[in-house]
Simulated scan of single mutants.
Amino acid sequence: MRNILLVSHGSMAEGVKASLEMIVGVQEHVHTLSLRPDGDNLQFEAELTEKMKALNGSTLIIADLLGGTPCNTALRHYLEDEEVTIIAGMSLPLVMEATLNPQATSEALIDLARGGIVDVKNKMIATEAEETKAAEEDLDQYKEFKGKANIVNVRIDERLIHGQVAGIWSTSLNTQRIIVINDEAAMDSLQKSSLRMAAPTSMRLSVLTIAAAAKNIQSGKYGKQRIFLLFKNPTDVLRYLEAGGELAAINVGNMSHKEGAREITKSIKVMKEEEAVFEAIAAKDVKVTAQLVPNDPVVDFMEKLRK
């Protein structure tokens, strides 16, 4: 796994790491180095050199400020080192994605960071207006597409829209619309607004109840759009199928640890009752796979589940 070194003026690097680990747990491959208020460029240079000698393999350096001493020092020493990547403009979303998705390129990480800057109030007002308009549509106008939904991926990910979905999966599949299918999210205006802000600006987003999703998708409402269906858990998938939705395959991405859960893959922990749900899904001739990011090999999830 690639090393990540956060470098900053003052305690920003330590603070970002602390916030990161509060959310995703201890990350031993994430390191920090600070230019202290009582220090100088020589002190920082010596400490950076010592720190980098201790790290083996490729390293991503994330600096707080373009043109600042931490960034400039790293650039001066590792500009021609092919094992070292340097990004300026540290933020928690950027560091989180770099930590959870070691395959992400520097370009993908930068795009994600840019997309995270939003005027929250104006965005909420705009998305509420879009939802009102969409709710008033007549589904009969889409009858020529009935039963022909162009579904490019179906994923279970309890985090719903986050970096892997927004920055990697959706982009690699040329997705035009993400549809989040979850009753709780669809009935919570704050959750819906948060999801809309997390989605790529180039893609449309729908946050629907299970019943509404099955109805809309089967009716052909989205025409020829390349749609990505996103579920929070396997129970919602089974309920979608029982409501008349049709799926050929699903990809299990992230299900975090819960008390009593069994680890199926590093990113998937399943409760006993969830195992029965997956069996019910598979019994409906739905292929169930596990794949964290597109570059990972596709794993037969049911085979691993039954071991």
Rank of each mutant, 00 (worst) to 15 (best):
E45C: 12
M96S: 00
A243P: 06
I117M: 10
E136G: 11
A280M: 11
R159I: 05
D236G: 07
M197F: 04
A290R: 01
P297L: 01
M52D: 04
A104H: 02
Y78Q: 06
A185P: 07
Y240G: 02
Y240T: 06
D183T: 04
K287L: 14
G260R: 07
K53P: 08
K123W: 09
V298A: 11
L65R: 08
A214Q: 09
N41K: 13
R306I: 05
N153R: 13
A283Y: 04
N101T: 09
L42V: 15
T105K: 06
V288Q: 06
A166F: 01
A46W: 08
A98V: 01
L160P: 04
A135F: 09
E83N: 15
L66V: 10
V152I: 13
G89P: 01
A126S: 14
K221D: 05
L65P: 02
A290G: 12
E275N: 08
I125K: 14
L66M: 13
L60T: 00
E97K: 00
G116S: 12
V16Y: 01
T99N: 00
L230S: 08
R204V: 07
R196G: 14
S19G: 04
H257R: 14
H29P: 07
I264R: 02
I227M: 07
G244L: 07
K215G: 06
A248Q: 15
K224V: 10
I151D: 09
M302P: 05
M302S: 03
G163D: 00
A113F: 02
R226L: 05
L241W: 05
Y240N: 03
I227R: 04
I151G: 11
E14R: 15
I61G: 03
Q43W: 13
N251M: 07
L35W: 01
G89A: 05
R114L: 12
A18K: 14
V84W: 02
K258V: 12
F278L: 03
